[in-house]
């Protein structure tokens, strides 16, 4: 069966990269109540998740 980890990994890696870049390039983009750079931190976590998925699917083949 086709491995779902590949597309999940790709999607989250793209999202992670996008958010991290956005958080770095535009750190002044903040929500009214957020005390952190939400995009940077969430993006970073997404990136880890996406890359882990990709790594797991590569290892399986």
């Amino acid at each position: 069966m086709w491995d779902l980890r590949t597309p999940s990994g790709i999607l989250f890696t793209i999202y992670g990269a996008l958010l991290t870049a956005f958080g770095l390039l535009s750190p002044e983009t903040r929500a009214p109540l957020a005390e952190y750079n939400v995009n940077l931190w969430s993006g970073f976590l997404f990136l880890i998740f996406g890359v882990t998925m990709l790594w797991m699917s590569r290892r399986a083949t």
Binding site: F22, G23, T29, R30, A31, P32, A34, V38, N39, G43
Partner: peptide
């Protein structure tokens, strides 16, 4: 709307 900036939103 209060916690997510554009991007995470």
């Amino acid at each position: 709307a209060q916690f997510y900036p554009s991007g995470m939103l």
